[in-house]
Design a protein around this nucleic acid. Structure first.
Lengths: 143, 143
DNA sequence: CTAGATCCTCCAGCGACTGGAGGATCAAGA
DNA sequence: TCTTGATCCTCCAGTCGCTGGAGGATCTAG
């Protein structure tokens, strides 16, 4: 039962998997509130900070940008409000992910074609170089 | 027949779709050779530069990092050498792309689940916020 | 001749960290 | 009690691949 525990920044880092400089960075940009200090000026954290940092980390891992996370945190801090905003944010993000996947798949096909065409012989006849040198070899126009 | 044309940096930018500061940046990091200058100190380019810059742009769009492009350019400049290196580079890159796609797909599923679970009601019961706050809601451990 | 477009260099900033220098403080063992 | 090593602090600079602005020179068209 970790209830009235007070953590150093190092302990917080270990618990959340977020590096120490990154925690300080989050504080500096206002994603984390300024941590209260001990007599010797060291930051001390409670379980609330652990949760907040985990939230941030998780959202970052899911690819949300810091600005989006800032908004999500504001919403999470105010549980009575309608969550349409959170939903919209997540949907926008989903669309972005889907478009990234599509572009990467086009890319993959291109590079695959490149690799498969290479006779492993000499640069003179290397499909990789050829494709890079001339966009006309590409199946896609998107890039 | 564009043969003995000499281009300003602006014209080169238009032809290749690469912005002027970016061209200068590529020169500064040695991806492009130092352009010869006119009497009034302006860079002037020939068709070789157009091709080289297109090569770079294309490779960047395919997601190659600048260091990889540097190597590819060295290879492209020396067509007699075996192309095993180019092939290896492209294969490494392919593997990276495939792993990125896989990770993004896991992500997409997660965010989709998040969005679909949202009752559009209040933050209190918002699946989006909930999922972000607690990784245990996730299907994947990878993140 | 003049106005506006284009060029030059230098420098600072983006996002999201990451790491090092140089110094203070803590916790544990001898 | 002393000392050693771990941990903390702040500040600053660097990463990557650009991007854009300031301030000034030069070109081109009318």
């Amino acid at each position: 039962m970790p209830t009235m525990s007070s953590l150093t920044i190092g302990a917080l880092a270990k618990r959340t998997g977020v590096k120490i400089p990154t925690i300080r960075y989050y504080e500096s940009i206002g994603l984390l509130p300024e941590a209260p200090r001990t007599g010797s000026n060291r930051r001390s954290y409670d379980d609330g900070a652990v949760n907040r940092l985990r939230f941030i980390r998780h959202a970052r891992e899911l690819g949300f940008e810091v600005e989006a996370i800032r908004q999500l945190l504001t919403m999470a801090d105010d549980p009575g409000r309608p969550c349409r905003e959170a939903d919209r944010l997540a949907r926008t993000h989903l669309a972005e992910i889907e478009s990234r996947i599509a572009r990467l798949e086009a890319l993959r096909d291109e590079v695959r074609r490149m690799v498969e065409g290479c006779a492993q012989d000499q640069v003179r006849s290397c499909h990789v170089i050829e494709v890079l040198a001339d966009h006309a070899h590409c199946l896609h126009d998107r890039h």
